[in-house]
């Protein structure tokens, strides 16, 4: 039975024998452990009173940071959101505002 790669063991201090043969990685989506949210300057903030759950903001996110659950969008994944602001423009109801200093 194939085992998923233990990403915690693979870093810039790992000895050669912990570097996977052929640099192959087993198991998907490990990039989640890398938090690109640190790149962000402006942060999207949602006003749930204005949000109509039209979902137009969800497909336009380049960083898969707006999850949809039971037909409703969830709050932003700020661990990964890079603050591009595309969602703010996609919202026709003014429910998303990009704010600095959050």
């Amino acid at each position: 039975m194939a085992q998923a790669s233990d990403l915690s063991k693979i870093n810039e201090k790992s000895p050669y024998y912990d570097i996977t043969p052929g640099n192959q990685i087993y198991g998907g989506g490990g990039a989640r452990e890398f938090h690109t949210g640190e790149w962000r300057v402006k942060t999207p903030v949602i006003d749930w009173n204005k949000c109509t759950q039209c979902l137009l903001c969800t497909p336009v996110c380049p960083d898969s940071c707006i999850a949809v659950k039971d037909g409703k969008r969830q709050d932003f994944d700020l661990d990964h959101c890079k603050g591009c602001g595309i969602c703010e423009k996609a919202c026709s109801f003014g429910a998303i505002t990009m704010k600095e200093g959050i």
Partner: peptide
């Protein structure tokens, strides 16, 4: 089908030498 695999990464100087040694 039990376990997806990714092959052919970008692996810069922190990993390249160990890869070659292997």
């Amino acid at each position: 089908s039990e376990m997806p695999m990714a092959v052919g990464p970008y692996a810069n100087s922190p990993f390249y030498m160990e890869t070659k040694y292997n």
